[in-house]
């Protein structure tokens, strides 16, 4: 009986972890999909620079994938500081 409960628990934990990973991957795939088809994708990215401090808030940027967005007009070289 105890063995069955342990197996069931392990199965539930494993399923949960896999589903969590699946959701994570799905989000990445969908984000990548919208990135290649244009649109306001790059919320924080500022083009081919890095994904860190040089981003433009709500800007469209000019990333390698995807076209210009509709929510902003920043460029990759702009920066903001908190």
């Amino acid at each position: 009986m105890i063995r069955r409960i342990v197996v069931l628990l392990a199965l539930v934990v494993m399923s949960g972890a896999l589903i969590f990973g699946g959701v994570h991957r799905t989000q990445a795939v969908l984000a990548s999909e919208s990135g290649t088809s244009g649109g306001a994708v790059y919320e924080t990215g500022g083009g081919p620079a890095t994904n860190d401090e040089s981003g433009v808030r709500d800007g469209s940027g000019s990333g390698r994938h995807g076209g210009g967005g509709s929510n902003g007009s920043g460029s990759g070289s702009e920066s903001y500081t908190e």
Binding site: A28, V29, A31, G45, P48, G63
Partner: peptide, 14 residues
Amino acid sequence: FLVLPSGGYQGGRN
């Protein structure tokens, strides 16, 4: 591949 879904560059958003 679930943990690290994409290896591509993706314009700085990856």
